[in-house]
């Protein structure tokens, strides 16, 4: 390469990579095959949708106009939405201590020992792998149907997800201040409390708000399996063919989701500034 003379105003010949098109072609072929298998595996057939349009049309016709009676639909809808919001809120905040502890143990830069690192990673993976809806079904057997089971389920699942996200943001953050405190004789707890954690506060809060957003939506689904809230109401509306009431409930949910989203965006903007 160094022998080649660079002529002014002329682009040198790009070095050839002979195997490049083969790997590209192989990659494209693999993606095509995977999609063919997936279409077969899911029974993906647009024709069915076209043939069945009448069913959808009658469903939509039943659903509109939405039922806007205050006593019968809107007020119970608002009450239930509030319960959904509370489930999401407690599920997020009550998982903070567990997520924080596990995250510190599971971040390579802050873990006290290799074994603690492996063990906490395994615990986090377990809580993440079990869906919140499964946790909800398990807790229902202990505390009965209702929002409390939903809160417990979200605490478990969210600990797994947020713990992992927090651990990763601690591993990514600049370890310089931590090293500086170590050379000054600070022990590991002091290093974490006075260098690592204050460095990642904005990321932590951002991820916390993101998880709050997700958890509010999850608690909706948990309502479908008996954890109360607006999800339960939607389920009942469908079962009793009151599709117009269902649409009202969904509109209320839409407002809630937008409000939570706006709130977390606003807080994150303030943090970044």
């Amino acid at each position: 390469m160094s022998e080649e003379t660079i002529v002014r105003g002329q682009l040198p010949v790009r070095p050839k990579q002979p195997l490049r098109w083969i790997t590209t072609a192989a990659g494209v072929a693999a993606v095509v095959v995977l999609h063919a298998l997936a279409i077969q595996g899911t029974g993906f057939e647009p024709g069915l949708l076209v043939d069945g349009w009448k069913g959808m049309a009658s469903f939509v016709a039943d659903a509109f106009p939405p039922d806007l009676s205050w006593e019968k639909t809107i007020r119970p809808g608002l009450d239930a939405t509030l319960v959904t919001l509370w489930i999401g809120l407690l599920g997020t905040t009550f998982s903070v201590p567990f997520a924080l502890l596990l995250a510190i143990l599971a971040a390579r830069t802050t873990t006290p020992h290799h074994l603690a690192y492996q063990a906490s990673r395994a615990v986090l993976s377990f809580f993440r792998a079990v869906p919140d809806i499964v946790f909800a079904l398990i807790f229902v057997t202990a505390v009965g149907l209702g929002p409390f089971a939903g809160v417990l389920a979200l605490i478990c699942h969210n600990t797994g997800v947020m713990g992992k996200l927090w651990a990763e943001s601690m591993e990514e953050c600049d370890s310089g201040p931590q090293e500086a405190l170590r050379t000054a004789g600070a022990n590991r707890i002091q290093q974490v409390a006075n260098a690592t954690l204050p460095m990642v506060v904005p990321q932590f809060v951002g991820l916390l708000l993101y998880r709050f957003d997700v958890n509010v939506r999850s608690s909706l689904v948990l309502g479908l399996v008996g954890a109360g809230g607006i999800g339960l109401l939607i389920n009942q509306s469908i079962k009793s063919f009151r599709f117009d009431a269902m649409v009202t409930d969904i509109l209320i949910v839409l407002v809630l989701i937008i409000a939570v989203d706006q709130l977390s965006a606003w807080v994150r903007r303030r943090l970044a500034a």
């Binding site: 000054a184 409390a193 260098a195």
Partner: peptide
């Protein structure tokens, strides 16, 4: 690269130099 904690005050960063003399319980915040 200086290695201070940008979000903390100058005073808190300087105190961190003395962490070896602060009991762990009183150094959490």
């Amino acid at each position: 690269k200086i290695h201070l904690v940008p979000r903390r005050t100058a005073l808190d960063n300087v105190c961190a130099g003395a962490l070896a003399r602060i009991p762990t319980g009183r150094s959490l915040s």
